[in-house]
Design a protein around this nucleic acid. Structure first.
Lengths: 268, 268
DNA sequence: GGGTATTTGTCCGTATGTATT
DNA sequence: AAATACATACGGACAAATACC
């Protein structure tokens, strides 16, 4: 047995889908039909389908049928550039400006504010002592009713003591947190560092994003620094990898990507 | 039945692993033992284990047993900075310099050179007409005998016509391709754009990297531009997401990450 | 709303193949 | 060669979700 039967079946179906014989969003034959077609047991058919689910090619709906996964047009976000990296805008403001320019419908939940004690990683990244309280603000963002990102931002509690009281209010800060911090307590961000990783979603994330198969998420940790190089905030943003891409530009003459696939989410 | 049995078992095992009761690289009980312990059939136990494989928590070895996946210490690579973004170094040189500074053992295969006709995406990215020939150079990189990245770089055929003949030789270019292009034909890269995405590995990639479960890969497309903003090369680099992270720094005063997790791969 | 048919999800038992020790 | 453990494959049974009448 060179190749297991379930894998042969999976490859066969995969070929059909990629050849376009099975259109996106269209049904696959039912398990019973596939059973007859490949002369295999239902469990073997199901193993084949499972392997297709794993690579995100199909999705099943109980009571209905199995569908070829519709290709999602990924949103491309430019993460470099003065507007974000140096903190003139928050990461959310970036999308809000995109909405205006592109006419997309955008939903941002009110922040869920919490105070927790910083431990290990977080304490180091925010430059506070371990066990010190930090503020966390979590928001979820949807674009055209598709869940798009989950963002948690951490700030030292010290900022509130100094007068930035709105940080602990569960309301969106219209002018943007960076502008608010500057005006309220004179803290400005002028450099940043992004740490990018990919991993499997946890339960919450899978539920919010509706990740069926085994779609990974990006986790981007953006640390903002003031002029002296001290960390002033840490934003942890989680994006589903099937609908998001990122661009970083570098150098004196950043080329504008033209002709290429539509680069939405870019701010000018 | 609130929660399916196989999921309860998976959660139970997952809790044990994360609590450290089952050490990394140590065996899980055999399927037969788990069968007795949870009073479930072998197929159900296997379904539970499959779901753990999917999230990369365990790996099975036929004839042996099931192992808790050893935590891989991820390598963090700084992708911003003049040294890489403006093309003073190639992406591979970056790692070579890392090797020297950190004393790691590093293997780079000789490039596999090909000539193909550019179509669609590639033609646009390289700024050549569709159907024009382009050079591709593919190399694979391992660190301490662990497969680490696959890199394919594309150049316009025009460069060879102008005299950069070593581009089509299947030999490593010691001084680095950017330096060679500058000296040979006066082409210099002074800006770049990185497009970052994550996806499931294809067959080749899964085989080379030895990806067992459902570990995604990063695909980074780095386009290099000359002083006039014309694309001069496209590097497509694939990294397994379980052992790689990336950093981009921005702003006038890039903070050096200290105290944090070891930031290897950084060049100074 | 209820009932029924269809389809996928879960679970079991069993048999045989394959890889490793 | 034999024993052990995971991989594949089949068959059957019932549950849960959905659509339709």
């Amino acid at each position: 047995m060179a190749e297991p039967l379930y894998r042969q079946i999976a490859d066969s179906l995969r070929a059909e889908i990629e050849a376009g014989q099975l259109a996106p969003d269209a049904q696959l034959p039912t398990e019973t039909e596939l059973q007859q077609r490949f002369s295999a047991s239902r469990n073997t058919i199901r193993d084949a389908i499972k392997s297709l689910i794993m690579i995100g090619l199909v999705e099943t709906r109980p009571g209905q049928e199995t569908f070829v996964a519709g290709r999602i047009e990924p949103l491309t976000t430019v993460l470099s550039g003065r507007s974000t990296g140096t903190g003139e805008m928050s990461e959310l403001d970036m999308y809000i400006s995109m909405k205006e320019s592109k006419g997309r419908h955008l939903d941002v939940t009110d922040p869920q504010v919490g105070i927790q004690r910083a431990r290990d990683e977080l304490a180091i990244q925010l430059g506070v002592a371990k066990g010190q309280p930090v503020i966390s603000r979590q928001q979820r963002l949807s674009i055209d009713d598709i869940p798009w990102s989950m963002q948690t931002t951490f700030y030292p509690m010290e900022f509130v003591n100094k007068g930035a009281l709105r940080l602990i209010e569960e309301a969106h800060i219209e002018e943007g947190v960076p502008a608010y911090l500057r005006d309220a307590i004179g803290v400005t961000q002028n450099s940043s560092r992004d740490l990018i990783m990919a991993r499997a979603p946890d339960r919450d994330e899978a539920a919010f994003f509706g990740l069926s198969g085994q779609v990974p998420v990006f986790e981007i940790q953006r640390t903002g620094f003031d002029g002296k190089g001290n960390p002033i905030r840490l934003a942890v943003i989680v994006y589903p990898a099937d609908r998001n891409r990122f661009i970083y530009e570098e150098g004196p003459n950043p080329a504008t990507p033209d002709g290429q696939q539509p680069l939405e989410g870019e701010i000018k």
